[in-house]
Amino acid sequence: MRGRMISPGKARGEAMVSREPVGFYGGIDPKTGVVIEKGHELEGKSVRDKILVFPQGKGSTVGSYVIYGLKKNGMAPAAIINKETETIVATGVILAGIPCVDGIDIDKIKTGDKLVVDADEATVEIG
């Protein structure tokens, strides 16, 4: 699948898919990488080294700093794939240097799929 490069880089790993938007500020703990938002479908799971797949971000613009903090603490996802990246996530992945691609049909990706992400070419491969 080909989309649009948001932040450059390459990654390979296991998909963790959220069908609902992800908010980083108050949503993910930057020290542990664990999703802490009450009632979120990923609550209690760690995003560390996963290819995190979700439609778009939500919530406070401080979320950009949380994405940066995750990377700094070694708890960041290996890459992020969105249906449409809005400015909070775009700002965060660029500051942090996390590969990110959007414009991908994320319905085709399931949690546990092995993904190869080449953000420089804006491609995502399953398998």
């Binding site: 930057p30 406070s60 700093y65 940066y68 903090g69 995750l70 700094k72 500051l95």
Partner: peptide
């Protein structure tokens, strides 16, 4: 904006 420690926390400070 994004100046208060209450808003940006340690991730913002480190950045």
């Amino acid at each position: 904006a994004g100046v208060s420690y209450k808003s940006i926390g340690d991730p913002g400070l480190e950045f």
